[in-house]
Amino acid sequence: MAQQEARKGVMYGLSAYIMWGCFPLYFALFDGVPAWEVLIHRVLWSSVFLAIVITFLKRWQPVKMALAHPEKLGFVLGCAVLIAVNWGVYIYAVESRQVLQASLGYFLTPLVNVGLGMLVLKETISRLQIVAVTLATIAILYQLFLLGVVPWITLVLAFSFGTYGLLRKKVALDGLSGLFVETLLLFPVGMLALAALSYAGLSHFTENTATMLLLISSGIVTAIPLLAFAGAARRLRLSTVGFLMYINPTIQFLIALLVFSEPLSPEKLTSFIMIWTALAIYSWSAWNGRSKTAAQ
């Protein structure tokens, strides 16, 4: 039975990360629609879709309990803002054909998690993990000083998602309920923004049927992998989920090169190699630590 659940977990995890990896192809369809407008619709339609899912699964009780105590929703609101920033910057990266920078951000995220765990939660980490975080830092500084460019997309994506994970640990809600409450807190802001856009005549929602359907689909398409990820996280070890995570930025990296034909200079490639080496060191350390724990 446990083996069957683990297999299900792997399938859910693979589905989530492959879908996330293919998102550049999806968001590239929103040609001419600003990233922030796509984000507004993503919030609104995710709320609608998740409300339907929660109704179907009869999971309203934890949502009602959370909303009954708004004074305790500080961390949930923080999560909502961080994931909105993450999505907004990611959509912008795709629309501006900077998917390589986006993929580097998601390669960097596990190392940011390690660094935040050490600095904020005072977690003890191994020497190899310290080496990995240091090497990742050097890779970013390399881009900053040698390329003369602040890789802000990479940094915002890595730190917003890393900090989101940190705050999510403080939230008692399960994956589905937490995701819905997060989205629901942004719903009024999304409605006001949409009303302002419509009033100013800048909304693309009624431009044509194809754009309207795309914007509606954004809520469903972005929510499905999050639900699959929640299913994987419940059934798998954290380390297994961590290893599967590399599928997402790897697919994005290949799409950037093979589909969008983004230029990969030797300097950019060097920074990627540094991050990949850091991830290999981190993965080896995590795997080694798990093996030792299992042997005890």
Results as ranks from 00 to 15, higher is better:
6 A>R: 13
11 M>Q: 10
13 G>A: 10
14 L>C: 04
15 S>C: 11
21 G>Y: 08
28 A>R: 11
29 L>G: 00
36 W>G: 02
37 E>L: 05
40 I>W: 03
44 L>S: 02
47 S>A: 15
47 S>M: 15
48 V>W: 03
49 F>P: 07
53 V>A: 06
56 F>E: 02
60 W>E: 00
63 V>K: 00
64 K>W: 13
65 M>G: 00
74 G>R: 00
75 F>G: 07
81 V>H: 06
81 V>Q: 06
93 A>S: 15
94 V>T: 11
95 E>W: 04
95 E>R: 14
96 S>C: 10
98 Q>H: 15
101 Q>S: 14
106 Y>N: 05
106 Y>L: 04
109 T>W: 01
111 L>Q: 02
124 T>S: 15
126 S>E: 10
126 S>K: 12
128 L>K: 12
130 I>G: 09
136 A>R: 06
138 I>L: 14
140 I>T: 08
145 F>G: 02
150 V>R: 01
151 P>N: 08
153 I>P: 04
168 R>M: 07
168 R>W: 05
168 R>F: 01
170 K>N: 12
176 L>K: 05
179 L>D: 02
183 T>Y: 04
186 L>W: 04
187 F>W: 14
187 F>H: 05
187 F>I: 05
188 P>E: 05
190 G>F: 06
197 L>W: 06
198 S>I: 11
199 Y>R: 13
202 L>W: 13
208 N>A: 10
208 N>I: 11
210 A>P: 03
214 L>T: 06
221 V>P: 04
222 T>N: 12
222 T>H: 09
229 F>D: 07
232 A>R: 00
233 A>I: 11
237 R>H: 11
244 L>Q: 01
247 I>C: 04
248 N>Q: 06
248 N>A: 13
248 N>H: 09
249 P>W: 07
257 L>H: 06
272 F>D: 06
274 M>P: 02
275 I>W: 05
275 I>E: 05
276 W>Q: 00
278 A>S: 11
281 I>M: 08
288 N>C: 07
